[in-house]
Design a protein around this nucleic acid. Structure first.
Lengths: 165, 165
DNA sequence: TTGACAAGTTCCAAAATAGAACTTTACTGT
DNA sequence: ACAGTAAAGTTCTATTTTGGAACTTGTCAA
């Protein structure tokens, strides 16, 4: 399967990745959340090729994650801003950052901290169940086919085929 | 900058992406969380080239996200299992899935549901502040350089350079 | 008139990917 | 003994994508 066919799969994760799963795209979005908006600023901060940057920004705009917003005319100059759809990617970004803080930090520790303006504390994000409020762990979550998709073999048969252990 | 230099940046997100930021890697990990463990099963479910699959699995093992576990000898056959480090990527996976559920679903709706075994309800993951327990929104989180990294210009100067608005 | 600025586009060489075939070790049925 | 199957890769080539640098366009300022 080619990468660009991934969004046709009946899988929300695959479809999300068809938008943000590219090598550079999430780094671009990180900078968007930090307030970077202009082409040359992205290029200078990321060390990304202008060629690829232009392509990724265009795709993010097409996907509705960013929108172009003119900040001067003659010559027309536009900056890139997160839409609401883009802002909703925040849990993804923050989860990636916290994993890196935990597992990829060097001797100096994580490079940035996050402070919650509401309570004033340094913090990290915790994922909880929307129904009961408990912290989520992978083993506690059962995945079920939705009725509309039932019987299509979206989920693997857990039993090993020839070597049941 | 080349992609493989990304892990040298002082940025937890960039470093995380140097492990999982590849196009296929997060789809492989999705299947790991669904219980897929064997080479041929990954290949059949993902439609990924064997070549690339072998390479990505090797890199995930090198990174400590997966580990090889023999399930038979003669001939030696090994399966891939998530380590604790890998299991800790669950918030990333679930956040990606929920964004896709919301923005990328088609008329049939999201293909799978998640049920929390503790409370028995269908649910989604919500990101809250570890300090005060409130739900997190991007505008409420301030990013600060850690003392050890201060003054290195990790964060952009928010003021626009020539066109302050 | 020259230079700077901003946001790209164009060009080419180098690297990565898709797709298919091949390899290795061992078991199974005839 | 022999063919077929199985699992987990490796090898091969053609196509695509990327990295790096230079070029373009429209406008203003010195």
């Amino acid at each position: 399967m080619r990468w660009d066919e991934l969004d046709q799969q009946p899988c929300s994760l695959a479809r999300t990745l068809s938008v943000v799963g590219d090598r550079w795209t999430l780094v671009i979005l990180r900078d968007c959340f930090l307030g970077v908006r202009r082409f040359d600023d992205f290029e200078a901060r990321l060390g990304i090729t202008r060629h690829v940057l232009a392509d990724r920004l265009r795709k993010l705009v097409d996907a509705g994650v960013l929108e172009k917003h003119p900040y001067q005319e003659r010559p027309l100059r536009e900056e890139y801003r997160l839409t609401d759809k883009g802002l909703d990617l925040y849990p993804v970004i923050l989860s990636l950052v916290h994993w890196g803080d935990r597992y990829m930090a060097d001797a100096q520790g994580p490079p940035v901290r996050h402070r919650h303006r509401h309570c004033g504390q340094h913090m990290r994000g915790i994922l909880i169940c929307s129904a009961c409020g408990e912290e989520l762990h992978p083993r506690d979550v059962a995945v079920e086919e939705s009725p509309a998709w039932a019987g299509q073999g979206l989920l693997p048969a857990r039993s090993r085929r020839r070597n049941p252990s």
